[in-house]
Computed example of a mutant assay.
Amino acid sequence: MAFWLSRLGVSLALLAGGASSSLAQTSDQPGGDDPVKRGEYVFNAAGCLGCHTESKDAPRLAGGRALKTPFGTFYSPNITPDRDSGIGGWTQADFNCAMREGKAPDGSSYFPVFPYTAFTHLTDQDLQDLKAYLDAQPAVAKPNRPHEVSPPFGWRFLLPVWQAMFLDEGGLPPAPGRDEKWLRGRYLVEAAGHCGECHSPRNFLGAVDHSKSLGGSADGPEGKPVPNITSDQQAGIGKWSANDIAFMLEIGMTPDGDFVGGGMNEVVSNSTSKLTAADREAIAAYLVTVPPVGR
């Protein structure tokens, strides 16, 4: 499962700027006026459960799940509202700063195994709703486990330099001429779902190689390869129809009748199967347009 790991109501002004509205701003969005229910939808779209829960029988969202990477093993943090070991003492500003800038309330920087390089594109409303949901969950007193990362990759004081080089804060760039469905799908893939964090190769400093975005990775989470999901006919999923993609996101079955395994099975179970059918279709509409990346 990835650590690296909105239904779009877009006005003409937003379309011109390429911005995205929140997941909550759609008439058929589950949750209505309840920020906790809306936040649950954002939580599911972002796949938070698998990353922040150590195992099936472990306390929910109390962290401790190991993520093996070429740089060492990272352990997910406790995101329950426990005030000592979780995020119970965080303000909304603290939460937004973590999600958008990769910084803790004490000013220290987070390792990019936490996919803030994608979450930085989330809207204010979605961040508010997500925090409301997390604040409503049971608090679990479980200290965070230290990462096991060798120097220099474990030197946290170097992270501000990394962030200055590779963190592109703010909303997604303009996309003139694209319709609401495509924009919605892009937001779900590139921001909330942070698919590129697992499905893209990384450079020697651990940053996503955007020139090969969604082109797969030989060194994915937990040391396993992650497939190419671009429109390449041979290396990617270019032979899949939009319906094939949406169906896979719903039940995990590929066009050849096989079922996805490993981390993607968790993504389907914890995330994409819980989205609305329209959102899965929006993701598919976006993915079929992703430029092909060959082998």
Rank of each mutant, 00 (worst) to 15 (best):
L5F: 02
L5M: 08
L8W: 03
G9L: 12
S20E: 10
S22Q: 02
L23N: 13
L23A: 15
Q29M: 05
G32V: 03
D33L: 15
P35T: 11
V36E: 10
R38V: 03
E40P: 03
E40G: 10
A45I: 05
G47Y: 11
G50D: 03
H52E: 03
H52Q: 07
H52T: 01
T53R: 04
T53G: 06
S55C: 03
R60P: 01
R60T: 08
A62W: 13
G72W: 04
G72L: 04
F74S: 13
N78Y: 08
R83C: 01
S85C: 02
G86A: 02
T91L: 03
A93N: 08
E101P: 04
P105K: 06
Y110C: 11
T117K: 05
F119T: 01
H121I: 02
L122T: 10
D124H: 09
D126H: 08
Q128A: 10
D129I: 14
D129K: 01
Y133I: 12
D135H: 09
P138Q: 07
V140Q: 07
K142H: 09
P143L: 04
P146L: 01
H147P: 15
P151S: 00
W155A: 15
F157R: 08
L159Q: 13
V161M: 14
A164P: 00
L167Y: 02
G170L: 08
G171E: 01
G171D: 05
P173F: 10
P173N: 00
R178H: 12
R178M: 06
R178A: 08
R178L: 03
K181Y: 00
R184W: 10
L188G: 01
E190L: 01
G193T: 05
C195M: 06
E197C: 02
E197L: 06
S200D: 05
N203W: 07
F204Y: 15
F204W: 11
F204N: 14
G206M: 10
A207R: 12
V208G: 06
H210Q: 11
K212P: 02
L214I: 07
L214N: 09
G216W: 01
A218K: 03
E222D: 08
E222S: 08
G223V: 07
K224W: 11
S231K: 02
A235N: 00
G238A: 05
A242M: 13
G257Q: 04
D258K: 14
D258S: 14
N265L: 12
V268W: 05
V268L: 06
T272P: 15
A278V: 06
A278R: 13
D279I: 08
V288D: 15
V290F: 04
